[in-house]
Simulated assay, not measured.
Amino acid sequence: MVKPDIITTPSGDRLAILPLAEYERLVDAAEMTADVAAYDEFHRRLSSGTEELIPAAFADRIIDGESKIKVWREFRNLSARELAAKAGISAAFLSQIESGARDGSFDTIKKIAAALGITVDELA
């Protein structure tokens, strides 16, 4: 590590001056530390069951614009009737929401999310 030059400004602030390469090394190290912390937090959540991974095929369907509710329903191996019953709505209404023919109210989407074991944000 390079020892920085220390200067004092007219207002009394002490500043460290160091070579740009050393500054960039410190920034890279800080970013790496943040990345490791984010990885560790994700791994902790995954191990505790509060986070899950979904296969790329399901994620790709969501990215391609398919109904998130339908994709999550199929990922959970639920029929439309099963999900509708768990959410307390009719299968016909669920079908209309999945197809985009109707929008569900926030309360309905909350019920569907809870029945799927996910957050409302994952359906947004």
Rank of each mutant, 00 (worst) to 15 (best):
A113L: 03
D35E: 15
A92T: 14
A124F: 15
Y23E: 08
P19L: 02
R73P: 02
T8E: 12
V27A: 12
A30W: 06
D40M: 12
E51G: 08
V71G: 05
D35L: 15
K110A: 14
T50C: 06
A91V: 03
K68N: 11
D13K: 15
A114C: 05
E22Q: 09
W72E: 01
A21D: 12
I89H: 07
S67W: 04
R73D: 00
D13Y: 11
A38V: 11
E74T: 14
K110Q: 13
L123S: 05
Q96K: 11
E41Q: 14
A56G: 09
E51M: 11
A124S: 13
T8H: 02
K70R: 15
D64M: 07
M1E: 09
E22K: 06
S47P: 05
D5T: 14
I69Y: 04
A80Q: 11
I112A: 05
M1D: 10
A16E: 09
L26C: 04
E31L: 13
A115P: 00
V36N: 09
T108H: 01
A59Q: 12
Q96G: 01
L78V: 01
R61Y: 00
Q96Y: 08
L78P: 00
P55V: 02
A92C: 08
K3C: 09
E41I: 11
D60L: 12
D40V: 13
I69A: 01
A30S: 13
R45P: 06
K70Y: 11
I54Q: 08
I112V: 15
E82H: 03
L83R: 04
I109H: 04
L18Q: 00
V36Y: 10
I54N: 03
R81M: 09
I89R: 04
I6K: 05
K86L: 15
L53T: 12
V120N: 01
E52I: 15
L116S: 03
R81D: 14
G117N: 07
I63K: 13
M32Q: 15
R14G: 00
A29C: 06
W72K: 04
A85F: 09
I17S: 07
K86Y: 06
V36L: 13
T108L: 03
K3E: 13
Y39R: 15
T50L: 08
S11Y: 04
T108N: 06
Q96I: 03
R45H: 13
R44C: 09
S48M: 10
A101F: 08
A114M: 08
S105C: 07
A37S: 11
I118G: 03
L94F: 02
A21K: 06
A85R: 10
I17V: 15
L94Q: 01
L46Q: 08
V71F: 00
K110V: 10
A115W: 00
R73H: 03
L53F: 14
L123G: 06
P55E: 09
F75Q: 09
F75M: 07
A16L: 06
D60V: 09
R73I: 03
S11D: 15
A115K: 01
P4Q: 02
G49A: 02
V2Y: 12
Y39D: 15
D107E: 13
E22R: 09
F93C: 09
I89K: 01
K68Y: 08
G12L: 03
I63T: 12
S48T: 12
I109P: 00
P55G: 05
L116Q: 01
A87T: 01
I69L: 05
V36S: 06
L78H: 03
W72M: 07
E74F: 12
F93D: 10
